[in-house]
Simulated scan of single mutants.
Amino acid sequence: MRVMVIIKATKESEDGVMPDEDLLAQMGGFDEDLVNAGVLMSGDGLKPSSHGKRVKFSNGEKSVIDGPFENTQSLVSGFWIWKVESMDEAVEWVRRCPDPMPGGQAEIEIRPFYEMEDFGEELTPELRAQEDRLRSEIERQFGS
């Protein structure tokens, strides 16, 4: 199963506080463990929401909202995409993670991805073929 491991933002991450050398080394070691175990598929940190934009959809209208955004607890400061056998395995990996945020307050959320079989009959053979074709093209373009 694939999961997205979401590192929630904090006041410090929204203020642009960067990790120190020690935290970078600890996280690098953790990422190395994930890679060596065949778990890590992708991951990155995100700049504060002051660098972002939101597009709001309402009754066919779209409006752009500039960051920063309110409610720090609902914001994401980084993510990993992991391939694990179970949610329990993902939790065990997160338990091994160094505290990812300066200031000692961090929260990590784990969310499973939908897989093709989750869509049932609505995913017709034609739609499945389209999805397979698109994934192949993305892999060709980006080598991921």
Rank of each mutant, 00 (worst) to 15 (best):
S136C: 06
P125S: 05
W80S: 12
G43S: 04
P98A: 08
F113H: 09
A9N: 07
I81C: 12
G28A: 04
L134I: 14
P19V: 05
M27F: 03
L40F: 15
M18S: 06
V5L: 13
Q130T: 14
E12M: 00
G104W: 02
S58V: 12
F142C: 09
S63A: 11
R54I: 04
S63R: 15
D66G: 06
D66F: 07
K47R: 15
E131S: 14
F79N: 00
E115M: 04
F57K: 07
E89T: 05
E122Q: 09
K83L: 00
R54W: 04
W80D: 11
S49D: 01
K11Q: 11
F69Y: 13
G52A: 11
E107F: 02
P100N: 01
L123C: 08
V64Y: 14
G120W: 09
M27G: 01
E109C: 03
E85M: 08
G29V: 06
D15W: 01
S144I: 14
S86M: 06
E92T: 08
S50K: 00
R111G: 03
A129C: 02
Q130E: 15
M116Q: 05
K11T: 10
E122P: 01
E21M: 11
G103W: 01
L23F: 15
E21I: 10
E89R: 02
G16W: 00
R2H: 15
V3H: 09
K53D: 02
S42I: 08
Q141D: 09
D132N: 13
K83N: 04
G52D: 02
M4Q: 13
R95S: 07
E139L: 15
D31G: 11
E126N: 09
R135C: 02
D118P: 02
P68G: 07
W93I: 01
D66Y: 03
V84W: 10
E14I: 00
N71F: 05
G143K: 11
S74N: 14
K56F: 07
D15S: 07
G120L: 05
D22E: 10
M4H: 14
E109Q: 12
V94L: 13
E21A: 12
Q73A: 09
E14H: 00
V3P: 04
V5D: 09
I138Y: 11
V39Y: 00
F30Y: 15
E85K: 15
S58N: 13
G29L: 11
V91W: 09
Q141S: 12
I6A: 05
K56Q: 13
E139S: 12
A9V: 08
F119H: 06
G103M: 03
I110D: 05
V5M: 14
Q105C: 01
F79R: 00
P112C: 08
S13A: 07
D66V: 06
Q26D: 11
I108M: 15
I138L: 07
I110K: 02
E109V: 13
D33S: 08
Q26M: 10
W80H: 12
V17R: 01
E12K: 03
G28T: 03
V84A: 10
E61Y: 08
D66A: 13
S63K: 15
L127C: 02
K11G: 05
L127P: 02
L40G: 14
H51E: 08
P102L: 01
